[in-house]
Design a protein around this nucleic acid. Structure first.
Lengths: 237, 237
DNA sequence: CCTGTCAACTCCTATATATGAGTTGATATG
DNA sequence: CATATCAACTCATATATAGGAGTTGACAGG
């Protein structure tokens, strides 16, 4: 092992404690002076380590209160760039229905994304999102690992618009991060029907893998949406 | 004016010198100890200011050499996510031809993006990008302010694949940053013809405004490309 | 009971200092 | 001439210290 700077060692130490679930999203981490003393490094070094973790958005600081482990912020999802708003630009809320939820065994493709062996028991959930005018705007297919969220397929269980709320509450599973990939694709027949569009119409497609503590993958999700007012903005330097 | 932290004052000071063109991309800025002395602040404060500017990607440091003003890195363009590669995944180079270049007067729409008054003299350039197999994959429309790049429309002037290289060299205009917006759209007839696709086929569209020193807008550009293998990836925390 | 004060804790700003590591060019030495 | 060394400069790491600003909860005084 090469000689790492001290602040990186501290950074890793904290990072690991979060990954391992010793610190979960929302938690207050030990104060800078406490860390400084317990780890036997100067307070400046601790601050530098936390600076980096803050840049990674793994932590956030609050002057006077302390430093907290970030909660996953799905407002940063690429999905927010589908602006299914009113013509006047207001962001419209999308409400979702859940026509399908069932236990299945994972296909090769799905299990590859979940990094489990083929045939793993899964819970499949399909949801359709509607805008204010009850027009369908997106179709969401989610595959959850049945061993982690057993009972999610229960018909009596009400599923809120933000699925992750229930996962946290009912199953005590902490969503730590997610990876998203955005693509453009063409509607196939079933998707076209769901969205009241034509086969062959363009779609914006979002793939997501959701990770919990210990970097366990708990969900693979594919969302297909109408590209009507999709935009994404950045700055280049 | 509220009392700003010292390091923010230093940060602003350097930022302004770059904006004003006193420091241009590629330049070496004064060393930390020089800045510390000339501005009469501690070296730690200078470092913190530069830290922030480095995060903004406005500067980059090189241990032992110094700190430089960043060059615009179009590899970060959203455009790089159109991977017009070979099937094996190699990123294929796209070469461009320039079928149209002419002086025009700006329409309302274009001038709005360039933030000039309507009817401003512009140079319009249209380019088509081809992959290895000479298949057209994208169409690029650029509007440049004629007062800044006078002579760009000259037929004798060879335009390289990276248009900005010539702007820097011939006209001494430094590209400082660019804003990009990505959308999905439907091909109209002329675009479909250019790209050998059908009218109504999906397109990925990239709008770009390019800024030079003093935040002058020098170019507005619209690129339409085939969405074949477009993907964009992020991580959410 | 309410309210104001204040101590004790958080992170934030700013300075000073010492040492290390990477780069460059001048200079001495074969 | 070639090359090895080394001084002088860059930024990077690490420590110590002091005072300021935001937050909280305990506690005294009405």
């Amino acid at each position: 092992m090469v000689d790492k700077p001290l602040y990186k060692v501290v950074q890793q130490f904290i990072h690991q404690r979060i990954n391992a679930g010793e610190l979960v999203p929302g938690d207050l981490i030990p104060s800078e002076s406490q860390l400084s003393e317990s780890l036997n490094v100067s307070i400046g070094t601790v601050r530098k380590a936390i600076d980096l973790l803050e840049q990674e958005k793994l932590l956030y600081r609050h002057q006077g209160k302390g430093t907290y482990v970030s909660r996953v912020d799905f407002d940063n999802s690429l999905f927010r760039f589908f602006s299914y708003g009113t013509a006047s630009g207001e962001a419209a809320r999308i409400h979702k229905r859940t026509p399908i939820r069932e236990r299945i065994l994972g296909t090769a493709d799905i299990c590859r994304h979940l990094k489990t062996s083929i045939g793993t028991p899964l819970i499949y959930i399909e949801r359709v999102g509607y805008d204010d005018h009850e027009q369908p705007v997106l179709v969401e297919k989610c595959w959850w690992r049945a061993d982690i969220v057993a009972g999610l397929e229960d018909e009596d269980l009400h599923i809120p618009d933000l699925l992750y709320a229930i996962i946290e509450e009912k199953f005590g599973v902490h969503v730590v991060r997610a990876e998203e990939t955005l693509t453009v694709d063409i509607a196939d027949v079933p998707t076209a029907k769901r969205l009241s569009i034509q086969e062959g119409d363009p779609l914006v497609v979002l793939y997501r893998t959701t990770h919990a503590t210990n970097d366990r993958i708990i969900e693979y999700r594919v969302t297909r949406g109408r590209p009507d007012r999709f935009t994404y903005k950045t700055e280049i330097r």
